[in-house]
Amino acid sequence: MEPFFKKLLAMDRRWIFLALGLAVIFPTFIHLNLPGLKPSPNVTAVYDLIEGMPEGSKVLVSFDFDPASKPELAPQGVAVLRHLFRKKHKVVAMGLWVTGVTMAKDIVTRSAKESNAKYGEDYVYLGWKPGNFAVIENMAGDIHGCFPKDNDGNETASLPLMKGIHKLAEFDLVVSLAAGSPGIDTWIAYGSDKYHFKMTGGTTAVNVGSMAQYVQAGQMVGLIGAMRGAAEYELLIDKRADAAAGMDAISLGHYLIVIFVLLGNIAYFVTRPRKGGA
């Protein structure tokens, strides 16, 4: 066995890249429908929060990510927006990441079109403003002053939906879908903790650990974690889409990595020099 494991340890790592690539590509052609996808308490909490709000509630959705995190966070955005529009809530969208402005607009517009939501009355896309936390502080005092125009150049004050919203605290809920900072932590520190509005959100897999502390401390309600969280949300709103379809690929990739980790460890123990050996 030892020569085999020695060869394994010396193997060109590009074979691992290839194997992983094939494992992720395979389920895009043949759907395996692997079992095990169930809504977790954190995702259910976000769903219950939106589901329980009275019709016409005002919700701010902040797209705090860029195309680099699109596969993880765009499905979350689509699922949450579908739910919000289905419940006839009023959506104001924006973003704190400059490189995500156009992508966020595309997500909002597509979701709104699908739900026959009317621009200016059912939803508004404000776009981006520089300043990270300063934007939140500014919005807390005067949203119209912070965003005098929406992303398309319309006067914000002239939009029917925005006529009834002047301060951040007037929103019934703020949702931040964030890939890092500025994001959920910024909204909590400069927004919800200070001006006392309800806060929830979603984040990438890398950030789930650091954002979960805010859920535990009651600073936000629930948390949608990565593509898996998006798939759970799709399950809850009964509309399976990109994220649910991607779970097979992710699972196969995970199985493969676990096998590689185990093989690597076995190879290490089999091939390591023994005590007193040559």
């Binding site: 992983l20 690539g21 992720v24 895009t28 680099a68 995190s69 699109k70 596969p71 993880e72 990438t204 897999a205 890398v206 990565a226 593509m227 898996r228 991607g246 690929a249 992710i250 990739g253 995970h254």
Partner: peptide, 9 residues
């Protein structure tokens, strides 16, 4: 998980 999601996307 995050990196695999990006690859899948």
């Amino acid at each position: 998980m995050g990196r695999l999601s990006l690859l899948y996307g």
